[in-house]
């Protein structure tokens, strides 16, 4: 079978709230299709084997490494990427806190951290520092030493709590 033409599949998914159709080969990862077919280059290819988290997106609300999902698997699913976080020119509270705390340097890991942090706060709006650190263990950053990232996520959680009380 190898060497012969592999049939492409038509996939329909909801990406950042918009319905999109695309053609892909079965061997193409969701990450590859997001970046190269749909032009959504926020998710990054770091390790391409599920260790670094730079390609994190939400698939039906669940945090996944998009390098370890085949694009054909997302037919009928909802995909949320970092491009969907900001509302127009208004940053998402997590993005704002990452800026305020300087929780990034080179920025390659940032989209993955933002999506992972969003997944955490969606299910646990008031995490402890230990919970944040364990949750983010699957996201690697070689610049910051993590501390500023953890502070930013905790601060975003506090701000979220405050706004939900108010």
């Amino acid at each position: 079978m190898i060497g012969t033409q592999i049939r492409k599949h038509v996939v329909t998914a909801t990406v950042n709230g918009n319905q999109v159709d695309f053609l892909c080969e079965p061997r193409q990862s969701l990450l590859e299709v997001l970046r190269d077919v749909l032009g959504l280059t926020g998710a990054k290819e770091g390790c391409n084997n599920g260790n670094c988290g730079a390609c994190n997106v939400l698939l039906d609300g669940v945090l996944v490494n998009s390098c370890l999902v085949l694009a054909v698997e997302v037919d009928g699913c909802r995909v949320d990427t970092v491009e969907g976080l900001a509302q127009g020119s208004t940053l998402h509270p997590l993005q704002q806190k990452f800026l305020e705390h300087a929780a990034l340097q080179c920025g390659i890991c940032t989209p993955g951290f933002l999506m992972a942090a969003k997944a955490l706060l969606d299910r646990n709006p008031d995490p402890t520092e230990a919970e944040v650190r364990y949750w983010l263990a699957g996201n690697l950053c070689r610049c910051t030493g993590y501390d500023k990232i953890v502070r930013a996520v905790l601060d975003a959680a506090d701000a979220g709590e405050a706004s939900s009380v108010a």
Partner: peptide, 30 residues
């Protein structure tokens, strides 16, 4: 013998990408 079962894919896709394994068909059972 030239097919592989796909559930979560966290081992399978890494093995295929690193060419530790080859297959003609991936069967998604989810």
């Amino acid at each position: 013998g030239r097919a592989r079962i796909l559930a979560g894919g966290t081992d399978l896709l890494v093995a295929l990408r690193e060419r530790r394994m080859t297959t003609d068909l991936v069967i998604d059972v989810k």
